[in-house]
Write a protein that binds this DNA or RNA. Sequence first.
DNA 1: TTACCTGGTTACTTAAAGGTTACTGTTACT
DNA 2: AGTAACAGTAACCTTTAAGTAACCAGGTAA
Lengths: 117, 117
Amino acid sequence: MTIKKCPDGECKKQIMAVHDAMDVLTGKWKISIIAVLCYHNKRRFSDILKDVKGISNKMLSKELKEMEQNKLIKRTVLDTQPVTVHYELTEYGQKLQSVIKNLSDWGIEHRKEIMGK
Amino acid sequence: MTIKKCPDGECKKQIMAVHDAMDVLTGKWKISIIAVLCYHNKRRFSDILKDVKGISNKMLSKELKEMEQNKLIKRTVLDTQPVTVHYELTEYGQKLQSVIKNLSDWGIEHRKEIMGK
DNA sequence: TTACCTGGTTACTTAAAGGTTACTGTTACT
DNA sequence: AGTAACAGTAACCTTTAAGTAACCAGGTAA
């Protein structure tokens, strides 16, 4: 990567786009939820509640709703005895994985840098 | 990218690393500040204040301080008439650019996806 | 009938992030 | 003497994010 001067306006678009992406990833829980859904392709509400340590049902419900609106996950209601609900990453949501990998790689380097290498 | 099952513990490390990276990038202003410092290699406090629209001196001061602690930027006090201070990305901070590029690319796709393609 | 499971919602409270305004100290200009 | 630029600080207030606890509806099983 080289430092490139933005041809006027380009910079702002890029900053907007980064913020769009960040909106989807920020908060205390979203990344953990995405990770769970990477690991177990399909997962029920109460399972995710157990997988993501510390999250409350309120927060989980809220985050899942947001992520569904953002088309990152798909919600499926199953016609079982006590109704169960499946959540899974959409094909599109799975594209986040490379973004997350990238962040994670930098984060690992960062920790080394700060903690003293 | 394929969905890979984490060999136990790997997942948690990755999630931690992503959160480490996010800590550095979240908040309303940090990405804009980094962008400004990408564009003009060196920049004074009052200039950044003008470049980043809407930021207050309090916030700018706070964010710059944090970013300096995280070794992303370098602060240089110049011995001029009214003292001026230069801020610039460290070599290490410049590595964030590929991360930001990645986020931005996904963000652009995301906006298309949500707004209706 | 009472109690429990699932997947939530609602109301209330606390903690963190961010905004606003005013102020400091230094030098220089008029 | 008064004002202005620079790089911040401090005090105070508002907004947003998150936590806690109770509750609800539909169905099951004892």
